[in-house]
Amino acid sequence: MSVPIPYYLALSALLFTMGVVGVLVRRNALVIFMSIELMLNSVNLTFVAFARQFGTVEGQVTVFFVMVIAAVEVVVGLSIIIAIFRTRDTMDIDDVDLLRG
């Protein structure tokens, strides 16, 4: 381990911050969704780094479950995006404001 664990954590934090910026700034629903994937992946990196630091398997098992949930989330989320696109013909989240009152 010639690269210290905190370097991995700092990189992970930076990737997570990029994902946050993407969710806050972008208007395209697909790009926001990809930014969420970016955040999930940065957290996965943190889990793997800590698993390496403490020499335990739990971090890697958690990453496995995160990947499963991410797969399900992508399937459901993309089908929702397609349903919105079919009914309202838009992918801009500012156009989807039925609950605004």
Binding site: Y7, L11, L14, L15, M18, G19, V21, G22, V25, R26, V31, M34, S35, L38
Partner: peptide, 12 residues
């Protein structure tokens, strides 16, 4: 790390 950061900027 450079690849990951460049990709992150590209996504956003």
């Amino acid at each position: 790390a450079a690849g990951a950061l460049a990709g992150g900027v590209g996504v956003v």
